[in-house]
Write a protein that binds this DNA or RNA. Structure first.
Lengths: 252, 252
DNA sequence: ACTTGACCCTCACGCCGCGGGAGGCGGCAG
DNA sequence: CTGCCGCCTCCCGCGGCGTGAGGGTCAAGT
């Protein structure tokens, strides 16, 4: 039996355009043409189309479908499990987005407008949920981490807001210093570096000079920290790194 | 403070091309240009960019972001909840795909190759999970539905395979009849229509003539049923409908 | 003053999976 | 012979950029 595009399209619940497309890319060529150039599909074509639609339902891209169907060495099981992972990953990302939206809606209800920093920290490369595991891997067995966990767990919403505010204030003054052209190892820069150390000690954990220089190195070594400071002011990560080192040397 | 594209790109962790794109579509125009034509971004531009990236993380398309940011009457809360629904819908679809993949992998393990019919019924418009609710809404309080439920619940895998086989056999003979050019109200068509009714009675539920004609009408009225028959043979739904009616009249 | 190399600019095509339309021919019924 | 439907082949459009090509600009080093 031979069928026209329209018949095939109705049967498989796809559009004629889709069949044209499959023909164009060589995924499903009709087995023949009439003298007038009309596409003629036979039963084998229909079978193949059904397989194609099946894999499409499973989310496979067309080129992979072609591979699965045409390459006798291709292992459908391997493709399936790869596709399974891929889809699971997509679901995970979407679920994070949904969680973030819920967070944003919740914040609006409570009446807090998210500050730029918060938006960045929550949804940017500083996503705390995603970050938390790694922080624990890297710092979980340190005293600083323990202290930080203990103190911050008792912080109220007001505490967090004050924290944010003093941080932003420091950030603004640091940025202004950079704009002024002052050297990173000058006295004003060192003073702000020292203030940064005190802020950490006050809000998070005891931060002696050597821990502070360790942090400073991480600010330039870890792109996620770098990016955080770069959004405050381009070049800030390197500038702050130098200021912290200068401050530590002068106080040693 | 003024920044170049490159600086802004590094700070916001996007590519220069992305900023060019935002400029092109008017989503984020730099506040100025140098005499040489270089883009110059200021702090307000950075703030806007951060908002843009924030909404992008939440999955908003660029034109909607523009709307949210530029239209003072736009309600971010409404956008958020709409977006929430949209993402939830996408998650649902992906989860269906994942379930289908798992089904397919399971079937491969057990060693059953899915037949075309099964692929179609499971993942096409005849998706049983999706379909089951509607079937129950429409037919749940009928005797036929009760019988069907009771009988099929006791079917073994072998029963199902035999069922599939006799159905396919009937389908092949019916398709061959159509190919032969026999009229839909001729004796052979009526005989196969009657056989169809007997098959239903044998495998599913008692199917008297009036119920059979009701089914026949549904085959042409409900596109999902129509599609099922159309994949066996284009035009089959209408042909079968006529044959069933002819058979019912002759036996009344 | 010149060169180098990093940066910037503007096109402009490519991706994926089709949707949709223009402009024109083929086939079949009345 | 006239409709009308269905078929054909282009070809643009979508979203959000990636990735060049082919060239100007800027600051630093020689």
């Amino acid at each position: 039996m031979a069928y026209t595009v329209g018949e095939v399209a109705r049967a498989a619940r796809v559009t004629v355009r889709t069949l044209h497309h499959y023909d164009e890319i060589g995924l499903l060529r009709p087995s023949g043409r009439t003298p007038a150039g009309y596409r003629r599909y036979d039963d084998a074509d229909l079978d193949r189309l059904q397989l194609i639609r099946y894999y499409r339902e499973l989310g496979f891209p067309l080129d992979e479908i072609a591979e699965i169907l045409d390459d006798p060495a291709a292992d459908p099981a391997a493709h399936l499990s790869r596709q399974h992972e891929l889809l699971s990953g997509r679901i995970g990302k979407l679920q994070e987005m949904v969680a973030a939206i819920e967070h944003a809606m919740e914040a609006r209800k409570v009446g807090i407008r998210l500050t730029p920093e918060e938006r960045f920290e929550v949804f940017g490369d500083f996503n705390p949920d995603e970050h938390a595991e790694e922080v624990e891997r890297r710092w979980g067995d340190t005293e600083a981490y323990r202290q930080s966990q203990e103190r911050t767990s008792r912080y109220s919403k007001e505490d967090w807001l004050r924290n944010k505010e003093v941080n932003e204030d420091w950030g603004r003054r640091f940025a202004a210093l950079m704009d002024s052209g002052a050297p990173a190892d000058g006295p004003e820069a060192m003073a702000l570096a020292e203030e940064h150390r005190q802020l950490i000690t006050e809000w998070w954990y005891d931060c002696p000079l050597e821990l502070h220089t360790g942090l400073a190195d991480m600010y330039v070594a870890d792109p996620r920290f770098t990016a955080y400071f770069e959004t405050i002011r381009p070049g800030m990560a390197a500038y702050l790194n130098e200021a912290i080192h200068a401050n530590a040397i002068s106080r040693a």
